[in-house]
Design a protein around this nucleic acid. Structure first.
Lengths: 349, 349
DNA sequence: GTTAGCACTCCAAGGTGATGAGTGCTAACA
DNA sequence: TGTTAGCACTCATCACCTTGGAGTGCTAAC
């Protein structure tokens, strides 16, 4: 069966009505809508067809129709028009982002907050994975007779450090020698390259003879590299789900919150998602607990390279068009912010 | 009226029964308990007295009795006996803490996880405030022609850093000079001292003539000092609240989660609490949203100085004795861990 | 002082019937 | 042939009632 012009119109009306009300849509209600020039009976016939085609479902015989994931997919791909944000909304987002722009982590956290507030959904943001960050130099600095600081500086200016307790005495010269040796070995490598087994093994055989110092430093070096790969997850608006009728069932609310408070799981899932704006609807989510949710995620980049994620999670019945527009604007803004931050202020060039 | 031996016995029985079942306790149920050698009627008379004295309340005429905050307070202060943890429990806690002991923040996060898992409540942990941390030196390190890294090292070996974009060219010598000047001015001061206005003002008038460099560095220096004062809040087991009958009402659950996801608020409240083990019950909590919860918090120390908090939040009907024992053991363990970490490994001394 | 007995209260759970929104089908209409 | 009015039917929801049980308070007897 073909999706006639009229069927599309009716389907779209059902979807947007259901998105607003969360109530199954009946033929009579629909017929009274602006621009619906068919009788309830006609609409019923079309609805029956649409149901047969898999776009609608039926909670029970005498209830209205509810859009299926297939319908939402069609809506997202073809029917919906992305509304331009109003000037006011844009200003609010841009202003609030700018206010927190001094600190990278804060900015990301802030972006999640903004997103959650505007959409009234649960939002999350992931800081970029620094896999591709290139090591610039490694430095060991004295603190006191038994403690030194290990510092790893990357090309992009990010610094990671760790206090290392030394089990053998050291001199400033020996520290510097070890720093230089390590820098020589790892400079120009990405963090993930540096972590691969054979590089480490090669290096260790080189230095092991040098001093007990290396034995204190190396495990900490690896640990710090690993930490550099870690991303942070920020989540905001968790309690918003209570305002959504779909979750007025306690059991459902519980599952939702249980799922979302498993940071590691969520982080993994977000990292795995494609870059760019990605929408997954209901059953399209491989994950069982997410099958009656929809996820919209987008990626932002820092200095044109490292990629972080930001997005929302909500009921399948969500305002896809609005939310998508907002996320798009927000990520553009983030990418800009971070380009500016790394490329230099407007005073330059 | 006096609290006779028998009244105390009955009150204690009511409290422990209610803690287990969350159901109002009736006289008949109580009379059947081990060691209760009075008839239901006698118990009823005593209950009526206890109610008059403010230890019990009555949801409605034909329901059993429920302990009031006053009763719990009496219970916590005098009636309850802190059970020693079983060897097994101790081992579990100690083992799991040790596993994460390489990284300070992770250890704290882990402690919150453990606490939540064992108690089946919502737990939180606060990293220590570094107000009293003493600045050891300040270092500026070159990254590229327009970026340097500002690094602040404290006596306790904690390092904070920030990438600073320079609007004027710099030389390695000028960097070193500025580092030394800053170190000279701030060395030996605590972070909070360094942040007080007149110190900054004095310093600024000194250096302002030196170069535009200081103008780039100082705001970032202050920002970094402020960041050093920030504490991190970890929260675990948020969804445990759904297993507690008291919160089977959706509205209540919502309020609870809304309250707890306001990180800044919660952090402030926790910082303000007294050190040592502190129990606040129901209405004793000044905060309105917490009036039907109880909070148990304790403090741990790092290197004998900085103080962080850890604790749980749950219904007023909570297993005070068990939970208190667990928290006590956990904080002792944390304090030990951090003493070891900073004082040196067992190989030393 | 303690206890048995009894009337009373109130919640919770289950059953009943009315209501109304919505459907599917059929037959009439343009 | 497509559209529409009409009608019987379905089902969830809600208000209302009934019943059972747990628990109390009071009184009188032990």
């Amino acid at each position: 069966m073909e999706l006639s012009e009229r069927k599309l119109k009716i389907l779209q009306a059902i979807i947007s009505d259901y998105i607003m009300t969360a109530e199954p849509v009946g033929s009579r209600t629909l017929s009274k809508k602006e621009g619906m020039d068919f009788s309830p009976a006609t609409i019923r016939n079309e609805m029956a067809d649409l149901e047969e085609m898999g776009y609608l479902t039926h909670p029970h015989t005498s209830a209205g129709r509810v859009p299926s994931a297939k319908a939402y997919r069609l809506y997202v791909n073809e029917l919906m028009d992305k509304p331009e944000l109003t000037g006011e909304e844009k200003i609010i987002i841009a202003e609030r982002l700018k206010n927190s722009a001094t600190d990278f982590e804060r900015t990301i956290e802030h972006a999640a907050e903004i997103l959650s507030e505007i959409t009234n959904l649960t939002s999350f943001a992931l800081t970029p994975r620094k896999t591709e960050d290139v090591i610039k130099y490694i430095s060991l600095l004295p603190v006191d007779s038994e403690t030194v600081i290990l510092m790893i500086v990357s090309e992009s200016g990010k610094v990671s450090n760790k206090a290392v307790r030394m089990s053998v005495p050291y001199t400033n010269d020996s520290l510097e020698l070890l720093s230089k040796t390590m820098t020589y070995n790892y400079k120009g490598k990405t963090v993930s390259q540096a972590l691969t087994n054979n590089i480490i093994a090669n290096f260790e055989t080189d230095v092991v003879a040098m001093s007990g110092m290396a034995q204190d430093v190396m495990p900490n070096f690896l640990k710090t590299l690993e930490d550099m790969l870690n991303v942070n997850l920020y989540m905001e608006g968790l309690s918003n789900i209570f305002d959504i009728p779909e979750y007025s069932d306690l059991e459902k609310a519980k599952n939702f919150i249980q799922l979302l408070t498993q940071k590691k799981e969520i982080t993994r899932k977000l990292i795995e998602r494609d870059d760019g704006i990605t929408v997954t609807i209901g059953e399209e989510n491989a994950d069982e607990g997410l099958q009656d949710c929809s996820l919209i995620t987008a990626s932002y980049s820092v200095d044109g390279k490292l990629v972080g994620k930001i997005g929302v999670i909500g009921p399948t019945r969500m305002k896809y068009s609005e939310v998508t527009s907002i996320i798009e604007y927000l990520t553009d803004n983030l990418t800009d912010t971070f380009k500016l931050e790394t490329r230099g202020e407007e005073t330059k060039k």
